[in-house]
Write a protein that binds this DNA or RNA. Sequence first.
DNA 1: TCATCAATTGTTATATTATAACGTTACATC
DNA 2: GATGTAACGTTATAATATAACAATTGATGA
Lengths: 156, 156
Amino acid sequence: MSFPSNDHDHRSCVASALGAAEAECRRRGARLTDIRRRVLELIWTSHAPVGAYALLEQLGRGAAPPTIYRALDFLLAHGLIHRIETQNAYVGCSHPGQPHAGLFLLCRQCGAVAELAEAATTRAIEQEAAALGFQVDSLTVEAHGLCPGCRGGASP
Amino acid sequence: MSFPSNDHDHRSCVASALGAAEAECRRRGARLTDIRRRVLELIWTSHAPVGAYALLEQLGRGAAPPTIYRALDFLLAHGLIHRIETQNAYVGCSHPGQPHAGLFLLCRQCGAVAELAEAATTRAIEQEAAALGFQVDSLTVEAHGLCPGCRGGASP
DNA sequence: TCATCAATTGTTATATTATAACGTTACATC
DNA sequence: GATGTAACGTTATAATATAACAATTGATGA
């Protein structure tokens, strides 16, 4: 929901994300296969978005692009990750299970992402659209700038 | 600012866009060269976003990709067009000269785009970000859905 | 006028991101 | 175990974008 501190316990971060993913897949009757789980783990190794081909390299074993893209499609379809359109990259969803429009703050210096779950903003945009007769189905909001750490001068 | 009607006078639409572009370039001391002007015209031939390679074909004369991308870079840099991130495509700016964050409504059926200039929404997002200590430099907002015409059942 | 420098354009090659198509394997269900 | 579907492997290719360097044009001042 906000920017992770530099010294947060990232292991538990990953563990809880994986746990939530398993729960969500059980709930939906979806299969979190080995490949899919490993891709999700790789995505969660950092709080910055990762590109598909970077994941491909990390996956190793001479995996081909479709392998990654299928896993990404699955994870996107089940709300376990988000795609960052302005970076052609993917990031773990910080609150799967509850449907929401992603609203992202992207630090141009350290690359970190924060995902907001501000229903208010989403609703405001939907209402503006509705005033023009436009019905919103999905919404992409990506703000680029400097995160608290990088703004302070230090590069966290 | 809103969706163009089906029978609007598109010639004058293009003409005024080109006129505004020339004025803006004069004001900025930028050169709207022949290629740049033609690319801008091609972009304005429709109110739907156009891809770079589609423009390339229309430009003809065996132009190579860098020709288009340079023209697009110029037009983006001077605020004469916008890039639609979710479509890797480009659309004419409906109010150049006044700096603004683009906020787009994209019809998934007819492809039409409306550009909102709602400073209120922009400011709301910036404030939410500021509450987390994040400083917004640029903002991308793209809503997908159905425009008034396509929602009505007819495909305009 | 012309020398000169910077901006623009031409050209070739290549990087990056993503998907099509088709065969094979694994898994659930009966 | 037979059968059907979902998942995965593999090869090729599409779509989007940039790097690098040469050639040209246009503005500016000597």
